[in-house]
Design a protein around this nucleic acid. Structure first.
Length: 846
RNA sequence: GGGGCGAUGGCGGAAUUGGUAGACGCGUCGGUCUUAGGAACCGAUAGAGCAAUCUGUGAAGGUUCGAGUCCUUUUCGCCCUACCA
């Protein structure tokens, strides 16, 4: 018997799928649709195990739904704009376009090796003008709707390279390339008004009942709705500044007011621009703030002004005004009222500058002379030392009451605040979608007319210039619109924009006139199942939700607002880490072990390797395994089988050599079984009820488990199938119903190991086209003989195999009189009998 | 500081609604076959005990006839987020 030749088989079926266009999807209103989408990859060079896991999950689901009769849309594309291309191009003296296209070719061939059921006719690439011309149109539409605007905003500026840095390019406050201390620089930039939908985005999370709660909570926190009030503080000591607005969630602690703090970027800072001490202070503030650690540990510093703020509820009380490093300009009004007794940050600040700490809330169990000591008290309690507010229960009552009073006296008003900020979309980069805007000689914003779209990137470009390479393209920049000389916008769009609407484009991927066809999206949208990494829980998913709302705003044709009905976030792929004696990471493929305990380097077996903990695969730790190599060694089906088998898909999985080789060996066993069945010449006449029962029960279980993403248990079932069928074929009579049941089995393993399943079906002269998912026959799902667990006082004592037809009374009588049970009951009195049908009997004795 | 998730054999993990804890795989041990095996096949495998049996789902309590599952407290681990007023 020949072993299973996965190389021949897998390439054969992949060719067949491609030639016959098996996965081509067309709108068919008579058939229920299923849109299965995995987050499309960035073409970084090669696929990694994370992709393998992501796309295997999506593929199994797509194939399963297809077998179940759905019209499945399962597309794939490339998130192909972005910085890595620019960096790689600069390093290797290439064009980003060429680098990207080469990577796409490689990765596409690798995805095909996995045998994914993708409709490649719908392939899209976000860096292609065919894609981004529609994006530019959408940008202009949103501009017309008032959802796009321009304002001054800060960027990270590298003063040596003279370039804008992305956050991830700033390491410890320094530019990643130059090492220069990064400065903050103000630039005019474009924004999407995502905050317009804050409330809607928050509320509609409730409707997403096929989303993980975790992701919804993360988005909820990100939107960060809070209830509070804005208060106007009168200011003394300046002829320019009359009052300052603050936002607070705790107006009820107003009598604890002991300073007012402003962000260094607060509009009032303009009056201090020439003050040398203030300039120094501002510099000091910008030093801390890039790494998370420094933020957490940053001490609170302030710059005292000559200004004084008056407590609106107590005109006698005047407090100093500071600029402080812990006040953020882009939340609230960039100004806070300091109440040290009941806010830890304010407390720290007050301690440092010897400001008054006035206790105005006491815990319920404390007396009225309670005083805050070592730290701020932010808990619930009762208002004290606050004149007419005294005695109110804090926080809820006291807040409501204070707001009422402030509103009556016209000193402030109730306000809901959101943490969610508008989305800055300008990037000072070459390799992104050009913003379809120009400016006339007076710097007015001029839209590029639709007929002139797309605004394409210039192909020959010098990436070694300082700053944005597009800025240096003087010829490209010049454009005439309606006879007027204009200069193009040289910023490009954030690549998150590209991925915020690609799910729509897949529905009409070939339409050159429009971004999408209403008829197409009416049928295909929303995405029924979206699958990807948890790292996109907030930004990408929130931006996509925003885009759907923005496109649908004042648009009667697209009525829905949620692009993704179901969301699944898969876990990461982990691998053991290895280091040599010099603390350098070592690749798994350069490591060997004879006993599984001591590890050595392949190149030099005298060198020991230290085994570290298993961590998520990353290039920096060199604990990666190359999928292409693994596929070539074991075959795609073995890889698919293993990547799904060891852990539930939402959790992390450990990649291991023993695991993948176990999957490989298992397929060989399954193949041997199939060959044994193929070569059987005997006819069987006896109907085998056990075989029928086993098959139907396992079909039921696999169907249910696939429906709930229980891939790892599905694979456990496949192992059980092998054990059962192997025993069955060792019998002299396999059963007259053997063949039809076995065919069903080959169908239910098809979504997971499709090449293998096809090959087995073909060996048995079975069709492989238009397979249908077998349904379990209810008749065989029930057992006639059931296990009855008997307990004495809740403790398991004996298990009886009982015919289901027996009635309750005789069953209890029978068990009571069982010799072993009698021994346990031991002449004691049965005071209660719990009976759960077909499951359990519990005697309570005393 | 805030939020979330989790803790089950040597390991990864099973266990619809509370109802036989440890499915399935890895590893380990024993056996068969083989010139050999790091191949294949068969069997065993939570712990203790010769056994009947007892103990076991991070810890402590509670609800219940019955808890891995529900409630309270607690410890540890992981993830996200971060001066949000």
């Amino acid at each position: 018997m020949e072993r299973y030749n996965f190389k021949l088989s897998e390439s054969k079926w992949q060719d067949y799928w491609e030639k016959e266009k098996i996965f081509k999807s067309v709108v068919n209103k008579n058939k229920e649709k299923f849109y299965c989408l995995e987050m499309f990859p960035y073409p970084s060079g090669k696929i990694h195990m994370g992709h393998v896991r992501n796309y295997t999950i999506g593929d199994v689901l797509s194939r399963f739904k297809t077998l179940k009769g759905f019209n499945v849309l399962h597309p794939m594309g490339w998130d192909s704009f972005g910085m890595p291309a620019e960096n790689a191009a600069r390093q290797n003296n290439l064009n980003p376009k060429d680098w990207t296209e080469k990577n796409i070719d490689v990765m596409k061939s690798q995805l095909k090796m996995l045998g994914l059921s993708i409709d490649w006719d719908r392939e899209i690439s976000t860096c292609s003008p065919e894609y981004y011309k529609h994006q530019q149109k959408i940008f202009l539409d949103l501009y017309d709707k008032g959802l796009v605007y321009r304002k001054e905003s800060y960027v990270n500026w590298d003063p040596v390279d003279k370039t804008v840095l992305a956050n991830e390019q700033v390491i410890d406050g320094k530019g990643w390339r130059s090492g220069a201390v990064v400065e903050r620089k103000k630039l005019n930039q474009w924004f999407f008004k995502i905050s317009y939908f804050s409330e809607d985005l928050l509320n509609d999370l409730n409707k997403l009942n096929q989303w993980p709660d975790k992701v919804k909570t993360m988005q909820k926190n990100w939107i960060g709705k809070s209830f509070g009030c804005e208060i106007d503080f009168k200011i003394e000591g300046s002829k320019d500044i009359k009052s300052i607005k603050c936002y607070t969630t705790r107006p009820d602690t107003l009598f604890g007011f002991s300073f007012l703090a402003l962000s260094v970027d607060h509009p009032c800072s303009k009056y201090y621009e020439k003050n040398n001490d203030f300039i120094k202070f501002k510099k000091e503030c910008s030093k801390t703030g890039t790494t998370e650690e420094s933020i957490a540990q940053a001490t609170k510093i302030g710059f005292k002004t000559e200004l004084e703020a008056i407590n609106p509820l107590d005109n006698e009380s005047k407090v100093p005004v500071y600029f402080a490093n812990f006040v953020l300009m882009d939340y609230g009004f960039g100004a806070v009222f300091g109440c040290p007794a009941h806010d830890q940050r304010d407390f720290d600040f007050a301690k440092k500058y010897n400001l008054q700490i006035k206790t105005v809330v006491k815990p319920d169990n404390e007396s009225d002379d309670y005083q805050v000591q070592k730290e701020a008290f932010a808990g619930a309690g009762v208002i004290i030392n606050s004149k007419f507010l005294n005695g109110l229960s804090a926080p809820q009552n006291s807040i409501d009451e204070t707001i009422k009073i402030l509103e009556e006296r016209k000193l402030g008003k109730k306000k809901t605040n959101y943490r969610l900020k508008d989305w800055g979309i300008s990037r000072q980069r070459y390799w992104g979608c050009p913003i379809p805007i120009a400016y006339d000689v007076n710097n007015n914003v001029i839209k590029i007319p639709e007929k002139n779209l797309p605004v394409t990137l210039p192909e020959s470009i010098d990436l070694d210039t300082n700053g944005n390479p597009l800025d240096a393209q003087t010829e490209w920049k010049e454009v005439v619109i309606d006879g007027k000389k204009c200069k193009r916008e040289t910023d490009t769009l954030d690549t998150f924009v590209d991925s915020s609407w690609y799910y729509l484009r897949f529905c009409s991927a070939k339409n050159t006139n429009k971004a999408f066809d209403i008829e197409d999206i009416d049928y295909w949208m929303p995405v029924d199942q979206y699958i990807g990494g948890i790292e996109h829980a907030i930004l990408h998913l929130l931006y996509s939700r925003f885009f759907m709302r923005a496109i649908s705003l004042n648009n009667k044709e697209t009525s829905f607002k949620e692009p993704f009905e179901g969301l699944f976030t898969q876990g990461m792929v982990c691998h053991q880490t290895y280091k040599d004696n010099n603390n350098n990471w070592v690749y798994p493929e350069d490591v060997f072990s004879e006993d599984g305990k001591n590890y050595y380097q392949n190149k030099d077996p005298s060198k020991k390797v230290i085994v570290g903990p298993s961590e998520s695969m990353s290039k920096s730790k060199k604990n990666t395994v190359d999928p292409e190599k693994i596929i070539k060694l074991y075959g795609a089906d073995s890889v698919r089988l293993f990547i799904l088998s060891d852990s539930p898909p939402e959790k992390d999985i450990q990649w291991s050599d023993s695991g993948i080789s176990a999957s490989f060996k298992f397929l060989q066993k399954l193949w041997a079984l199939n060959e044994k069945i193929v070569s059987n010449k005997k006819e069987f006449s006896e109907f085998d009820k056990d075989l029928e029962k086993f098959t139907n029960q396992i079909i039921k279980k696999v169907t249910d488990d696939l429906d709930r993403f229980g891939f790892n248990v599905v694979i456990a079932s496949i192992y059980k199938i092998y054990t059962f069928y192997n025993k069955q074929t060792n019998k002299s009579d396999w059963g007259s119903n053997f063949f039809e049941n076995y065919i069903k089995i080959l169908k239910i393993i098809n979504p997971i190991i499709p090449h293998f399943s096809n090959e087995c079906l073909e060996r048995l002269n079975q069709p492989v086209k238009n397979l249908q998912w077998p349904s379990a026959n209810e008749k065989y799902l029930d057992e006639e003989i059931v296990n009855i667990v008997t307990q004495i006082n809740g403790k398991k004592r004996k298990v009886f195999q009982i015919d289901k037809s027996i009635d309750k009374e005789s069953l209890i009588e029978k068990i009571k009189n069982d010799d072993q049970m009698k021994k346990y009951i031991n002449n004691k009195k049965i005071i209660k009998t719990i009976y759960i049908e077909n499951k359990l009997i519990n005697f309570i004795i005393r």
